[in-house]
C-alpha cells in the first residue's frame, strides 16, 4: 500500500471483511470477480491509484427497528481488499460491472498505469 492509496473515503484503520475473489488471466488482460453481498451500488467504492487497486463496500441491510442480532457471520459492515497491479495492466481502461452483490472487473493489458476512479456500470 502506498500513501496515495490511503486517501479513500473510509479511514484505513477501520476493520473490514476480506471479500472472496476469483482472478483469471488471459492474453488480453485480467478478470476479477469479488463477492460483496449486501453492498448497494452507491456504497461500492473502486479506486485505482498508481499500481494499487482498492475495492471497498459498505454493507446495508434492511433491518426492522429494534432488531437484536443473535448470530452474525457477516459481523462487520464493510468489505475491503487491496491488490497491487503489475505494470503491463492498463488502469485507464478498467471496466466494472456490479450486480447481485458480485463485482466483475476487467483490466486489459497495456503500457502505463495512471490514477483513476473507476465508473460503475449498473446492470
Amino acid at each position: 500500500m502506498t500513501d496515495t492509496a490511503r486517501k479513500t473515503e473510509t479511514p484505513r484503520h477501520e476493520a473490514a471483511l476480506l471479500p472472496p475473489v476469483d482472478v483469471f488471466e488471459d492474453a488480453a488482460g485480467i478478470t476479477l470477480y469479488a463477492d460483496l453481498p449486501g453492498v448497494p451500488k452507491d456504497r461500492l467504492n473502486l479506486q485505482v491509484e498508481a499500481d494499487t487497486l482498492t475495492i471497498e463496500g459498505e454493507v446495508t441491510l434492511d433491518m426492522p427497528e429494534g432488531m437484536e442480532a443473535s448470530h452474525a457471520e457477516i459481523s462487520l459492515p464493510r468489505y475491503r481488499r487491496v491488490f497491487t497491479l503489475s505494470k503491463e495492466l492498463d488502469a485507464d481502461k478498467v471496466a466494472a460491472e456490479f450486480a447481485h452483490g458480485v463485482l466483475k472487473l476487467r483490466i486489459p493489458k497495456a503500457e502505463h498505469a495512471q490514477p483513476r476512479r473507476v465508473e460503475i456500470k449498473v446492470l
Binding site: L61, M67, A69, E73
Partner: peptide, 9 residues
C-alpha cells in the same frame, strides 16, 4: 451462504 440471524418481539 454466510448467515446472520436476528429477532424483534
Amino acid at each position: 451462504p454466510a448467515m446472520n440471524v436476528g429477532g424483534t418481539p
